[in-house]
C-alpha cells in the first residue's frame, strides 16, 4: 500500500511539474513575454520594469529557476489588467466553480447509478431503453448547446428559473444538469456493463445459493464490485468537469474559474492564464490522486498487486 501510494504521489508531482514547465515554455515561445505580462497596455518604461521584475534579462535557465521558485512560494503574480493578485482572483472564484462541480456530480450520480444498475438487472426492459437513450444522447450532445436549449425552454419559454448567473439553489439546476449530463452518459454505460459482468459472476450465484434475498445479493455482493470501475471513471468525470466548467460557465455567466480562464485568454492577460492553468491542473491531479487512493480502499486486491 505504501509503495503504491508513494508511486502515485510521485506521479502527481511529476504531472504538476510538467504543467508548470509547459506553461513556462509556452510563455517564452510566444514572442516577448514582457508584452504578455503587461497585456501590451503599458508604456515602454513599464514594460522595461516588468522585464527586470520577471528577470527576463537573465538567461533562460535562470528565468526558469526564478519562475519555479515563485511558484513553490505560491506567488502566481499579478493580473496584467487590474492590480489584483492572481491568487486573490482564484480565491474569490474558486467556490463558485467548486460548488457547481459538486452539484453536477450529485445530479449525475443521483440519476445515473440507479439507472445503470436497474437497466442491467432488468435487461431489455423499458428502463434499459431509457438508459441507452441517455447514454447515447449524453455522449453526442454538445454541452454548450444543451445549456442554451435548456435556457430557452426553462428560462425563456416557461420562465421557471433565471436564465443565467449565480443565485439561490435554483440557479444551480440548469448549469449543474448541463455539466453533469455528459458525465451521466458515461456512468450509465459503465455502470450497466460492469453490473452485467458482475451479475454473471460465480460469486453472485454463490451469494444466491446461500439463500440471501435478491436485494442483499444486489446491494451487497453485486453493487460493490460493480462500482469499482465506475469509481475509476470518476477521475475522468472530474477531468470532464474541468473542461466543462470553461464552457458551462461561459454559457450561464457563472462567476467561476472557468470563466476567468476564458476571459483572461480572450483579454490576453497572461499572469491570470498561467495561474488558472496551474491551479486547475493541480486541482485535477490531486483529485486523480484521491480517486486512486479511494480505489485502493474499495478494492483490497490493489494494495498487494502492482
Amino acid at each position: 500500500m505504501a509503495g503504491y501510494l508513494a508511486g502515485r504521489v510521485f506521479q502527481a508531482i511529476l504531472a504538476l511539474w510538467f504543467i508548470a514547465t509547459l506553461v513556462f515554455a509556452l510563455s517564452r515561445a510566444a514572442g516577448d513575454p514582457a508584452e504578455l505580462f503587461t497585456a501590451n497596455l503599458a508604456a515602454p518604461e513599464a514594460e522595461e520594469m516588468m522585464r527586470e521584475r520577471l528577470g527576463l534579462d537573465q538567461p533562460l535557465y535562470r528565468q526558469y529557476v526564478i519562475y519555479m521558485g515563485q511558484l513553490l512560494q505560491g506567488d502566481l503574480g499579478t493580473s496584467a489588467r487590474s492590480n489584483v493578485t492572481v491568487a486573490q482572483i482564484l480565491r474569490e472564484r474558486m467556490p463558485a466553480t467548486f460548488s457547481l462541480a459538486l452539484s453536477a456530480i450529485a445530479i449525475a450520480i443521483i440519476f445515473s447509478i440507479p439507472l445503470g444498475v436497474l437497466s442491467a438487472i432488468y435487461r431489455d426492459s423499458p428502463i434499459d431503453w431509457i438508459a441507452k437513450v441517455v447514454a447515447f444522447l449524453g455522449q453526442s450532445m454538445p454541452s454548450f448547446w444543451l445549456g442554451l436549449m435548456l435556457i430557452l425552454l426553462f428560462a425563456v419559454i416557461l420562465g421557471w428559473v433565471s436564465p443565467a448567473g449565480k443565485g439561490g439553489i435554483s440557479s444551480y439546476l440548469l448549469p449543474g444538469f448541463t455539466l453533469g449530463w455528459a458525465a451521466m452518459a458515461g456512468i450509465v454505460r459503465l455502470m450497466r456493463s460492469s453490473m452485467l459482468d458482475v451479475l454473471d459472476s460465480d460469486y453472485v450465484t454463490m451469494a444466491r445459493a446461500k439463500g440471501l434475498p435478491e436485494i442483499m445479493v444486489m446491494s451487497k455482493h453485486a453493487l460493490r464490485n460493480a462500482l469499482i470501475p465506475v469509481i475509476t471513471y470518476a477521475s475522468l468525470i472530474f477531468g470532464a468537469f474541468m473542461n466543462g466548467s470553461v464552457v458551462i460557465e461561459s454559457v450561464f455567466a457563472w462567476p467561476g474559474i472557468g470563466r476567468v480562464a476564458l476571459n483572461s485568454v480572450l483579454g490576453r492577460d497572461f499572469p491570470v492564464v498561467q495561474g488558472v492553468v496551474i491551479v486547475f491542473g493541480a486541482f485535477f491531479i490531486i483529485i486523480n490522486l484521491i480517486v486512486d487512493i479511494l480505489y485502493a480502499v474499495i478494492d483490497p486486491r490493489i494494495k498487494y498487486s502492482r
Partner: peptide
C-alpha cells in the same frame, strides 16, 4: 415461491462451484 426457496438454499442445500478463483467475492 421465492422466499420459501431461500429457506432451502444455504440452509438445507449448499453448493460448491468449479472455480474457487471466482466463487468468492473479492471485496469481502
Amino acid at each position: 415461491d421465492e422466499s420459501e426457496m431461500r429457506e432451502y438454499r444455504g440452509r438445507r442445500m449448499a453448493m460448491i462451484m468449479q472455480d474457487p478463483q471466482t466463487s468468492l467475492n473479492p471485496v469481502f
